[in-house]
Design a binder for these strands. Sequence first.
RNA 1: GCUCCAGUAGCUCAGUUGGAUAGAGCAUCUGCCUUCUAAGCAGACGGUCACAGGUUCGAGUCCUGUCUGGGGCGCCA
Length: 441
Amino acid sequence: MRNFGTMNATIAQLKKRFEQALVAAFGTDLAGTDPILVPASNPKFGDYQANVAMSLAKRLGRAPRAIAEQIIQHLEVSDICEPPTVAGAGFINLALKTQYLETQLKALQSDARLGIAPTQNPQRVIVDYPSPNIAKEMHVGHLRPSVIGDAIARVLEFLGHDVLRLSHIGDWGTPFGMLIAYVKETYPEALASGELALGDLATFYRAAKKRFDDDTTFQEAARLAVVQLQAGDAETLRAWKVVCNLSNRTNRQIFDLMGLSPHIQERGESFYNPHLAGVLEELKRLGLLVEDAGAQCVFLEGFTNKEGKPLPLIVQKSDGGYNYATTDLAAIRYRVAEDKVQRVIYPVGAEQTNHFAQIFQVGRRAGWITDEVEFFYAPLGAILGEDGKKLKSRSGDAVRLVDLLDEAIARARTDLETRLVEEKTRRDRRVYCQCRKSRRH
RNA sequence: GCUCCAGUAGCUCAGUUGGAUAGAGCAUCUGCCUUCUAAGCAGACGGUCACAGGUUCGAGUCCUGUCUGGGGCGCCA
């Protein structure tokens, strides 16, 4: 059951009255009949309408309007509504009494919770927060999951749920390998000193990406760096830690700028790293794992490739590395087994619909996701530029989030100042006019 | 090729288990506020709900097909 606020309580109350009226008018056969009470389709019909008379016409073998008339003869709602009326094909229209509304509104006004009762069955809920890859700066794509995720978390918390805010940051894996390989190759002194301003890192990232795209031997070096990272190589880990700390500080500043909850916990890909092998083992034990072209896969039901063959979800690459899907599966397993959640919400861009359907399917087939726990993917649209395409900077990269926020704040401030000046001018003019008017008399 | 999402007024979108004459904001036009390049108020205009079938007392809503746009589709995240 949902928890009822005041307006919902009104609907519940009216429904009860209708159920009583239905029994009084037509007998106990109709006990428990849904009165189909909904908000009025148009304000001119009042506040609520009951559509049950039409639905009963065939069953009772009588005209809907006659049924409606008989219902309202037995309907006792005078403490809440004006006298009900029958209209159209057999609609019963209800208008709330002004005095009833007054009483309700006054009650809301004096209630710190605005009439919203805490939930009857609080759950442990995880809300997935935007997961920037910390090898890169946050960009415009992180805005929506930030704001929407935070809003969802606040609403659930207000309702009385135990909300765990987790940022599944990309602090591991391929982009890091590329970066580490590039730093090792081009700026070994920065690695040794441990000093890297993030701005430099962003530049490094672009240069490394170009290097990665242009040179196949460098791609190999990057992949090797990932393996070294996952194998726990000391120097690689040192470089990794420096980058993590810098990046986390910067991201927290951006979170603060957006006014996000201070209670966001970082639980990134590195957190799940020790659990990945266990995920593989369990999938293998369950008979879900299949080797294909050197990669460890789970073949999916309902997903096919261009040739119509079942599509694999790759959980271990042919080079031995793990990927996005593996970490997400580890997170699913951990959240159920260790966090003991009843609900997990992922506000993530809509383009990942397939990915979530796939990992949820594997999670269910592995027995981690049961009917007792709800994994909910909340797809989000993208923020588009004026050309209707994803918002890009002039150089073609995604717009940096900090730039976007700075500009938004600057524009809002300019707009506010303009309005304040206009308002003052208007006030002065009004005073002036009133003076002239009063002088005339 | 397969698959997911979307298509409602000029624009941006609501439309709650299928219910009344499909709504709102913006834009446009008209009028009002007896002095304002402001602001507001009132009204008007504006729809084959992408298209074609089907289900039924009734379809924007459910089913089937078609068209258009967007996303995704083996070792990125």
